[in-house]
Design a protein around this nucleic acid. Sequence first.
DNA 1: AATATATCAATAATAATATATCAAAAATAA
DNA 2: TTATTTTTGATATATTATTATTGATATATT
Lengths: 214, 214
Amino acid sequence: MKKDVSQVVVRRMPRYYRYLGQLLEDNVERISSERLSEIMNVTASQIRQDFNNFGCFGQQGYGYNVKFLRDEIGKVLGLDKTHNMIIIGSGNLGRALASHGAFHKQGFIVTAMFDIDKKLSGTKINDIEIRSMDELEGFIKKNRVDIAAITVPAEVAQELADRLVSLGVKALWNFAQLDLEVDSDVIVQNVLLSDSLMRLSLNMTRKRVLDDND
Amino acid sequence: MKKDVSQVVVRRMPRYYRYLGQLLEDNVERISSERLSEIMNVTASQIRQDFNNFGCFGQQGYGYNVKFLRDEIGKVLGLDKTHNMIIIGSGNLGRALASHGAFHKQGFIVTAMFDIDKKLSGTKINDIEIRSMDELEGFIKKNRVDIAAITVPAEVAQELADRLVSLGVKALWNFAQLDLEVDSDVIVQNVLLSDSLMRLSLNMTRKRVLDDND
DNA sequence: AATATATCAATAATAATATATCAAAAATAA
DNA sequence: TTATTTTTGATATATTATTATTGATATATT
């Protein structure tokens, strides 16, 4: 039984992976938490605590081996395996995901797209075939699907999620502007663009509210 | 001395706005924190604490008036004003943002798009003209620009951010996979798709559900 | 080889966040 | 009207997250 890692830690892990990748590119062989903390603008304590949630990757007096650490964090992030992903909805957002090369490099393979519009059936985006929604059941039964990206209108997203979950999909990457209700063994990761924009807006209006003023 | 609201609270505000909108559509006139907490799956305490960061919107023995509360939270989120937004990069992601109708409804008006590819100059997406990057300076000087959405490759994003900031843009909605370095009076809101996907992947091996968007 | 320095992992201390409690105000019922 | 119930906003408590400290162990220096 793995101990539960908190989501604040989870949120930080990809950032570490990103910076370690950069260090690797720059041929940095080893790094201390102190040095990394300067580069990343966080405390060295937090870095060590975060890493130690997943294992002891460092060595006293030496620091962390960049290559080893990045690989270990990669494993934590599941990047040592490949994940088959389908995209439901071939609107602009669906197409953006399909043609985003970085995912493939990290082991997230888009195996199919689906769209309600049958006129699109058979056409391809970035070599990925668009299929009719009627084919969803058959496709998932024949092919392993680890992740489904949902880029359909919010009005039909819950219904779609139910359909995907009933077919055994355990991870949903949700771009529809609502909270999906799913069984507790299904993971939902939201990317809610409107929410993000509103946060930006909120922070814009409050940024000048400084301590001594009022 | 007005205390700064913490980002954990900021992160939750758009979700309240969303649920209150739903209640309004369902013609619910008033609601208690207790009832809302059941619907939203959080504690009533947290809801009251969150709201009280921005004002006293409720009434003992009555609860919250849905219409009033939603309007107040709307103001907190800056939705009572309009924000002029430009999009830099007219790839799939840029086009997805440009054609996403919901932003406009919430007062975020896309006034122009820019792309390095001069062949696209003059063409339109969702009635928004694509301009050459050469026109950036001129456009920003002539037109108020509140927010710039950055959907260019990571390699050129920092350089672009510097350019935008030097032209006086104070808010960046960043989709490029890197941490932008900007003056402290500039707000950066990241939407890092790869990071989000990695978090999903991490959670898949460790089971949990939660929201994204920092 | 001996000593000094670097640095982690674990633990303790502090700070931030979330939840529970409660007095007072307002609504509702009697 | 008066009593009872509801429900907030404020405050107290509990929990979680972050930062600092410490002891152990590796590396570097003399």
